[in-house]
Amino acid sequence: MTAGHSRSKRGDFGAALLFLLPNALGFSFFTLFPVAAAVALSLFDWNLFTEPRFVGLANFADLLGFRNTPEGWAPNDPRFWKFTGNTLFLMLGIPVNVAASLGLALLLRRGGRLQVTFRTLYFLPSICTGIGIYVMWQWLLNPDSGALNKILAVVGIAGPGWLKSYEWAKPGLMLMGLWSAAGGTNMVLYLAGLQNVPSELEEAAALDGAGAWGRFRHVVWPCLQPTTFFILTMGLIHGFQGGFDAAYVMTRGGPDGSTTTISYYIFQHAFRWFHMGYAAAIAVVLLGVIFVATALNWRWGSRE
């Protein structure tokens, strides 16, 4: 136990190395190296079987470039831009989901018997994954026989075509996302974060005459900053690469590509059409976008 004494404020380097080593080794081998390999792959034209052909930045030019056509300038790959738009559109659901999770967590934070039961019941959707649930949502969102439109009809609203219509497919998926995410991991994270809010502070604020909103605004919310930062960061990251499962199982990316996200597009190029290089190039671009977005968020999150 003597090492601790000689350690200066900056001198944790040796210890840090040891602590980091087990994870860093596995991480380098199973994450960092494959990423580097993927970046290298984006410079090649490769169908998995014939020899990879070095093409430089041609994949990126095909992906991001524009060309002059008789009708004016047009993107080389209009699908990429359309699917990027889809991905961003679906990400509009993130703040709604996070707000819902926070609301539920606030309602359920006391941890009474009843509330623990509710927590479990609300958590259910997030773990009922897989094909079974997707089938159920397709049934729910069926324009004619689906439960949702039947309920809407009772209120006198003619329900939309949901997954079968170009305009409503994305809102349909966002609804499903809200259902499955609100009581899920984000709520659990907020519940854990709420444990860290010092009750003395809240009581003091209450004594000072702060209402429920005031206590939330000035005591609870600041204490939840790290949690919110984490949730938003993960939300951004997942949002940019999200939408694969639903597209794969429920809509095949349609109708007319309205539910195809970037990750599904990468999958299509890599595992349906076997353009490994081009798929890697999309992934690298996606990586860059996510990196910039997260870096901005990180700067904002570590400001205080």
Binding site: I266, A283, L287
Partner: peptide, 14 residues
Amino acid sequence: LGTLMVPTAVTLIP
């Protein structure tokens, strides 16, 4: 943090 953002599809083949 950066590698958190790597889509599964990228690392799958390598």
